[in-house]
């Protein structure tokens, strides 16, 4: 047998991108379950549809770009984008909303920038933000938690956006939205006047806890380091706590901020996206802190129900700058010890 010439190392941990992606997909399952439990079949239908679309678009664009299809299709990155979108979009999304989001994510945000590893922005967030700006009504239709539709009803809604029996009763704005749009009242007044809010908050809390669990599993498997998510949650909690202390009736508490909306989903599945985030650990801390602060600001003063897409895209934009200023000191550069005075 001929001997080959290869560069070291000849050993490998056998970790693979596809394995990392599979872990990420598995870690979303608790959150997916919680979301389905509280909001019905919508998320599941969305997930299947988004995955189908993502793989289809990925294959198509790989073919058009003249790239090998199977290796990239099986690395799981397109599926991760699909999952994140399906989980982030409202359960009541119609088919075309998901189609727009997924196609824009995969084709424009990912492949037009050079495909996996080269995209400056998180593809799922780009698709999400596009839909949020273009179709604000559809993007804020969340199910009322006290009612669930049967699978058939949900299926019908998914394709036709109407259900026999009057769907309007089934939808409501998110807890965050309610809190924002009733600024005239204090939070306690809102809570007493709107029984849905308490229910919504509970559902939202459980969904967030489920994502937190999944995130901790990923942390345990060292899929990412703790820096970005912890920095983000800490800065968001800190800002919220500070303002809540000052004006408890105007600003929701830190725990409400941390356990509503897409906080945990973003913290562990989107902020941790290595491609569009900062590189070094110090950089990841800065990145996370930036996202946290932006989320608080946009949630408190912006006009959109949740702030993650914008906060993350803005920080994606700053990632190269952060990288420039957070370059770690290499071995031997720490101390200003005297340089060699010539070989001994």
């Amino acid at each position: 047998m001929g001997l080959i010439n290869l560069s070291s190392p000849h050993h490998h941990s056998l970790s693979q991108t596809s394995r990392l992606m599979a872990l990420v997909l598995l870690a979303t399952l608790p959150g997916l379950a919680a979301q389905s439990y509280f909001y019905g079949y919508g998320t599941l239908i969305n997930l299947v549809w988004a995955s189908f679309l993502a793989l289809g678009f990925e294959a198509l664009i790989l073919y058009l770009r003249g790239r090998p299809i199977m290796p990239y299709l099986t690395d799981g990155s397109a599926l991760v984008t699909a999952f994140l979108l399906a989980l982030a979009l409202p359960p009541f999304s119609p088919w075309w909303l998901t189609l727009v989001a997924v196609s824009f994510s995969i084709i424009f945000a990912k492949h037009l920038y050079g495909g996996l590893g080269s995209n400056p922005f998180n593809p799922a967030m780009v698709g999400y933000a596009l839909c949020l700006i273009s179709f604000p009504v559809a993007m804020t239709q969340w199910a009322g938690t006290e009612m669930t539709m049967t699978f058939g009803q949900q299926w019908q809604w998914f394709w036709l956006e109407s259900v026999t029996g009057g769907i309007d009763a089934y939808t409501s704005a998110t807890a965050l939205d309610i809190m924002r749009h009733t600024k005239g009242l204090t939070l306690s007044e809102v809570a007493s006047s709107n029984p849905q809010l308490a229910l919504g908050l509970t559902a939202s809390m459980w969904v967030n806890i489920a994502y937190l669990l999944g995130g901790l599993v990923l942390l345990g498997f060292k899929v990412f380091t703790w820096h970005a998510p912890v920095a983000m949650l800490a800065s968001l909690g800190f800002c919220a706590g500070l303002f809540h202390m000052g004006e408890p009736d105007l600003y929701p508490s830190a725990s409400q901020h941390l356990l509503t909306g897409a906080t945990m989903l973003s913290a562990f599945f989107i902020v941790t996206d290595p491609v569009s985030g900062a590189t070094s650990r110090k950089g990841k801390l800065v990145f996370g802190i930036g996202v946290g602060i932006l989320v608080f600001i946009i949630r408190s003063y912006g006009s959109y129900p949740d702030a993650f897409a914008f906060a993350i895209l803005l920080m994606n934009l700053s990632a190269p700058l952060i990288d420039t200023y957070t370059k770690p000191k290499a071995y031997g550069h720490q101390s200003k010890a005297p340089r060699s005075q010539g070989r001994p």
Partner: peptide
């Protein structure tokens, strides 16, 4: 001998580097 994929900047290498490089 594997075909290598695109770098996804996962940062595992930075965690592993004993010279504290990127």
């Amino acid at each position: 001998i594997a075909d290598h994929h695109s770098c996804i900047r996962c940062g595992l290498c930075e965690v592993a580097c004993p010279a504290q490089l990127l």
